[in-house]
Nucleic acid binder design. Structure first.
Lengths: 208, 208
DNA sequence: GTTATAGGTGAACAGATGTTCACCTATGAA
DNA sequence: TTCATAGGTGAACATCTGTTCACCTATAAC
């Protein structure tokens, strides 16, 4: 038996996949038919049957909207979380500010390395002040508000009304923030600055 | 009217959210009841009603399994894609090798910067040979097989049976690969090497 | 021709699912 | 006390949804 889907069957697969990817509930047979211009439910049912035989589609019976594309990756997938991305955080802390978010970053928790809370947020990096820690202009950094930074941690702090990345260090027992770029050698006393979050992860896209 | 959910209502919200995050279809009223130890469907319906009144939950009527947690982020969310992550690619190209994937990286396409194809894959970076381009040990890089690399592009190539990151350059009209680390100054002729993919994105988690 | 397969229409049916109603308990405010 | 609200049980009901059957067309294989 041929295990490759036909064109029409492939269209059904793609429709189900796109629903999943968009975060919508899986379509019903009738919704699939409507989308593909098929008037009869049983025609859709036949496509589904064929795809199940070919091992490409799952359908738990007795449950509505349970169509699920089978892929080797599916078994490896982890829960995906959605994090608010800000250009900058004008003042204070990022909690309960989701409504002011510029965009949304969605990543699975395994790749992210931790399970985010309400205190997790993301910033777009501007400038190369953290080049020494291999964080460059345009990167998106994920931060967590709350935990006490340890020496060496990268933190976001409010400097001159802007969220800025610095390294948290201690000198003579007192906390300071420093940029990781020889062009900005100054140390700033950390007590006077509001630390908005501690660096947890980074995402970068290639230029263009 | 108080717009905050009660404990019990919050439990309902969390259950719906966890289904979504895990990539499962939204639960039915009866499934919610089962999960929370509620025997009566109408009790669940009351919680859903209350959450809708408070603007925390959406329910398109006439459709089953259409519960959807309302969040300011929801409107900003982009489609999420799932990419196979390999430790290394022993030989050849990464297409149709999903069944050999070590893990799965899930990210939204906006953060990723492009819409992946069947030729998209991810590698875990080993060593600091690309430190000059600010890619460090442990990073996950997303690559695309297929497109012709342009000078300056970062590529994965098969060197001594291992997938390795290099910069693609031209010298006297001929293509070479070079590491971005003063410790490895050698240029390798690119013709002899199999280029597995071109760098498209990067994800890094903080140490520990 | 015959046969098999993909694709489709239309209808009837059983079970899943959301809605609604009557009724109960507990808690706190007026 | 009385009243409102949160939480719950149980059942009846309408509609959504998957299943199944009879029947049709087109295409390729034999």
């Amino acid at each position: 038996m041929n295990l490759e889907p036909t064109k029409r069957q492939h269209a059904v697969l793609r429709m189900i996949e796109s629903h999943r990817s968009a975060g919508e509930p899986p379509p019903t047979f009738r919704e699939i038919g409507q989308n593909l211009g098929i008037a009869s439910v049983s025609a859709v049912a036949k496509h589904v049957q064929a795809l199940r035989r070919k091992g490409l589609l799952n359908l738990s019976d007795g449950r509505s909207r349970s169509l699920d594309v089978i892929s080797p990756l599916r078994a490896l997938q982890n829960p995906v979380v959605h994090i608010a991305l800000f250009g900058s955080i004008p003042a204070g802390y990022p909690q309960h500010r989701e409504q002011e978010a510029d965009a949304c970053v969605s990543v699975d928790i395994e790749t992210l390395g931790f399970k985010p809370t309400r205190n997790t947020f993301a910033l777009r990096v501007s400038g190369d002040s953290m080049i020494g820690r291999h964080i460059v202009h345009g990167d998106v950094v994920v931060l967590e508000h709350g935990p006490e930074p340890r020496p060496g941690d990268i933190v976001a702090a409010l400097v001159d009304g802007e969220s800025t990345l610095k390294t948290f260090v201690r000198k003579n027992g007192r906390p300071f923030l420093k940029a990781e770029n020889p062009k900005y050698p100054d140390l700033m006393p950390a007590e006077e600055l509001m630390i908005q979050g501690v660096f947890k992860a980074l995402i970068r896209k290639a230029k263009e």
